[in-house]
Every structure is written in structure tokens, then in C-alpha cells.
């Protein structure tokens, strides 16, 4: 049975396997699931962790710390520290994701933070999510007796809540390894401080013989709705490169319309980056 160490304030569970974790979670569905804990601790107000009555720590669940790579996929356990993924290097991790992970806090935070934790933060779109969405990554959600795969772009509902059904846990993330010709990631500010006008930008493209074969561009200002225009992407696919400046300008005008709740700084930054990315394609 899961190792349980009681304290006067909080009860902490340390399940030793995935099966135990799912069992404990089913028994105590309101317990706080503790992965890296960096987001939770960044929100604290005092000089201590604000722990609820029951915490389930994932630190001993070996199945959640596995990394595997095939020709088609990179699979990352939800508890793999970001720093460990970065150590795999850009030759093993899609460049845009590699760059995104390098922007999530300094090394001493990336040594604790996890991809599963990044996905599980409710109400905010953390740095890795726009990139994982563009890469068609999927998250495995497990509960006792079953599992389902959900595209990372659908892990958060429109209201920002996380689409976890009762007793479900994010266990791994599968990232397809697709031969992109151009991968760009940029970030301004931080989702943790909305006053910094945070903006995450990612662009992916595949070109061949000076023809644009595939294009994906996404932006995120931290709120649940990602900034993406698939019809614009589809319109540009098949065009000869380099793209004419006039067409690029027209295309990026479609981004950042009123419904996206962007500040003028965020909109301007996004449009400049999108323009630069599109004009750089060869």
C-alpha cells in the first residue's frame, strides 16, 4: 500500500507505483496531486508551502519518470523534470519544444518543474502548451481501469479548467517527431505576471523546393484561448517562397481581433513575429 506519512497539518501520500497512485486518488479524489509543485509554490503568500489536508506526492512513481523515443514519437512521463528533457538536446527534442522548455524558469526551477504540472495548471496556458499543441502532442489521462488520449490543445476547456474526469491523472505526453523545416519559439514576459504583457509565439513550417507545404502559427497571452488562424494557414500553404510582403501583411492582419483579449503590445509583438517568421521562410 502507498507509503503514508501523517503530520499534524497535512497527510502526505507517497504512492510507489502508478497502480497505487490511481488507487489512492480514487480513494481521496480531493487530495492535491503534487508533481514538481513549482507553480503552486510560486502562488504562495507566506514562507511555507500552503498544503491542503491531503497531498499525493508523485515523486516515487517510477512509471511517470520514463522517457522513450521511437522514429515517430517522443514520449515523456508526466513527472520528468524539464531539465532532464532539455538535457536530451535539440537532436532528440523538437527544436521549438526544446526552446520553450529552456524559457520555463531558470535551471533551478526547471530541475523541479514537470511537463505534467505545466499541463495541469488551471486557468492559465503555461509556456509549453502552445508549442505542444502545434506539434500535435497528446496527453495520456489514466484512471483505475482505463485510459484515454487527449490532444494537448484540448486539455484546457474554454473556461480554463482542466478537462480531467473524476479520478484521472495526466501520466505521459506523446510528441510526434515530424520533419519541420523551420521551428521558431519566442517568449516575452511571464504568464505568472500578467502585467508583463506575456506573449508566447511559436511557428512551424515545412517547405520543399521553395513551396510552403505546411504552416502552423500560434500565439498565447496566457489565457485559455490560443491565438491561431487555421484558415489563414491553409490559404498560404502551396504558395511559392519567399512569400510576398503584401500577402504576409494581409495574412497577419487577421490575428488579434477583439475576441482574443490582447493588449496592444501583445498584438503588435505577435504580428511582428508572425510577419518575420513568414518572410523568413525559404
Amino acid at each position: 500500500m502507498a507509503d503514508e506519512r501523517a503530520s499534524p497539518e497535512s497527510k502526505i501520500y507517497f504512492p510507489q507505483s502508478l497502480a497505487e497512485l490511481l488507487q489512492v486518488h480514487r480513494r481521496d479524489p480531493d487530495a492535491l496531486i503534487w508533481a514538481g509543485g513549482t507553480f503552486i509554490l510560486s502562488q504562495r503568500t507566506g514562507r511555507f508551502a500552503e498544503l491542503p489536508a491531503t497531498v499525493v506526492s508523485l515523486q516515487d512513481v517510477e512509471e511517470l519518470e520514463r522517457i522513450s523515443r521511437t522514429e515517430r514519437y517522443l514520449e515523456l512521463g508526466a513527472m520528468v523534470p524539464l531539465r532532464q528533457i532539455i538535457r536530451l538536446g535539440p537532436q532528440n527534442v523538437p527544436r521549438a519544444l526544446y526552446d520553450a522548455l529552456r524559457h520555463i524558469g531558470p535551471p533551478a526551477v526547471a530541475g523541479l518543474a514537470t511537463l505534467g504540472g505545466n499541463l495541469a495548471v488551471a486557468g492559465r496556458i503555461m509556456t509549453a502548451i502552445p508549442v505542444l499543441t502545434l506539434l500535435d502532442a497528446r496527453a495520456e489521462l489514466r484512471r483505475q481501469g482505463g485510459a484515454r488520449w487527449l490532444p494537448v490543445g484540448r486539455v484546457h476547456r474554454a473556461d480554463g479548467s482542466v478537462d480531467l474526469q473524476p479520478y484521472e491523472i495526466i501520466t505521459r505526453i506523446r510528441v510526434p517527431l515530424y520533419p519541420w523545416t523551420a521551428q521558431v519559439f519566442r517568449r516575452f514576459g511571464s504568464e505568472l505576471s500578467p502585467d508583463s504583457d506575456p506573449l508566447t509565439f511559436c511557428g512551424l513550417a515545412r517547405t520543399s523546393n521553395r513551396i510552403l507545404e505546411e504552416l502552423r502559427i500560434v500565439g498565447s497571452a496566457g489565457h485559455p484561448r490560443l491565438l491561431r488562424n487555421k484558415s489563414m494557414e491553409a490559404e498560404l500553404v502551396g504558395r511559392r517562397l519567399p512569400l510576398p510582403d503584401r500577402e504576409v501583411r494581409q495574412a497577419i492582419e487577421t490575428y488579434g481581433e477583439p475576441g482574443h483579449e490582447l493588449s496592444s503590445i501583445q498584438r503588435d509583438r505577435f504580428r511582428r513575429l508572425a510577419r518575420w517568421f513568414l518572410l523568413s521562410l525559404r
Binding site: R5, S7, I12, F14, W34, G37, T38, L41, S42, F48, A49, L51, V55, S57, Q59, P81, R83, Q84, G105, P106, P107, A108, V109, G111, L112
Partner: peptide, 26 residues
């Protein structure tokens, strides 16, 4: 966890000890 002054190696990884609750050290 930003300034680096409380850094240790935690399970072989750089880690900010101000971002680690005591139970995680188990």
C-alpha cells in the same frame, strides 16, 4: 526560485530549495 542563492543539487538536478516543501526531500 529565480535568484539562485538557495540552490542545491536535488537528485542530481539543480533545484531552488525555496521551491521545495520539506516533504519532497523524503
Amino acid at each position: 526560485g529565480q535568484c539562485g542563492s538557495c540552490t542545491v543539487l536535488f537528485n542530481g538536478m539543480l533545484a531552488a530549495t525555496c521551491m521545495i516543501p520539506a516533504f519532497r526531500a523524503y
